[in-house]
Amino acid sequence: MTDFADFQLAGGPAGRRIVVAMSGGVDSSVVAALAKASGAETIGVTLQLYDHGEATARPGACCAGRDIRDARAVCDRLGIAHYVFDHESSFRAQVVDHFADEYLAGRTPIPCVQCNMGPKFTDLFALARDLGADCLATGHYVRRMIGADGSELHRAVDPARDQSYFLFATTRDQLDFLRFPLGGMPKDRVRAIAAEMGLGVAAKPDSQDICFVPDGDYAGLVKKLRPAASDGGEIVDLSGRALGRHEGIIHYTVGQRRGLDIGGQPEPLYVVRLEPEARRVVVGPRAALAVSAARLADLNVLGPLEGPLTAKVRSMAKPVPARLHGDQLVFDAPEYGVAPGQAAVLYDGDRVLGGGWIAATEGAALAA
Rank of each mutant, 00 (worst) to 15 (best):
P268C: 09
D298I: 05
L299P: 06
G118A: 15
L153F: 11
D176M: 02
V96E: 07
V330F: 02
G132D: 06
I193K: 03
T2G: 02
D215C: 10
Q163I: 01
C135A: 15
I146H: 14
M117N: 13
K120L: 07
A278P: 10
F125W: 14
M145V: 15
G264A: 10
V283M: 08
G349E: 05
L34P: 03
K223V: 10
A55G: 15
Q256W: 05
V157Y: 07
T42L: 08
D217E: 12
R273P: 04
P181M: 03
H82L: 07
D261A: 15
F331R: 01
G44I: 06
F4E: 05
G60A: 11
S230V: 10
R129D: 14
G60C: 12
M197S: 12
Q174F: 02
A343R: 03
A14L: 14
S292W: 00
I110D: 03
Q8F: 13
A359Y: 01
G147L: 11
Q265W: 12
Y165N: 02
G326I: 09
H246R: 05
A10V: 13
L324R: 04
T170Q: 08
L353Q: 02
G284H: 06
V272E: 07
T46Y: 08
M316N: 14
L299E: 07
E41T: 15
L305N: 07
I80Q: 10
G349M: 10
H325L: 12
D332I: 01
E41N: 05
A288Y: 01
L78Q: 06
G25K: 02
L302K: 00
L353V: 05
L199W: 09
V330W: 04
F331L: 11
R161Q: 15
I146N: 12
A137R: 01
R129M: 10
D231Y: 07
A297Q: 12
D332S: 15
A228I: 11
R161N: 13
D86F: 08
D149W: 06
H154T: 00
A294S: 14
D149R: 15
V201E: 07
G356L: 04
V301A: 03
D188V: 13
A311N: 08
Y165W: 13
K187S: 12
S315P: 05
R107H: 09
A290S: 04
G15A: 03
S207V: 09
P186Q: 11
P276R: 03
G216V: 09
L260Q: 00
A93Y: 09
A242E: 14
G12Y: 07
G259W: 07
V20F: 08
G354L: 04
L269C: 06
A278G: 11
V26Y: 00
D70F: 09
G307M: 10
L302E: 00
A10S: 15
V113A: 11
D215R: 11
F180Q: 04
C211W: 15
A194E: 01
A128T: 05
A128C: 10
L127D: 02
D206I: 08
V113M: 02
M145C: 14
Q328A: 13
M1V: 13
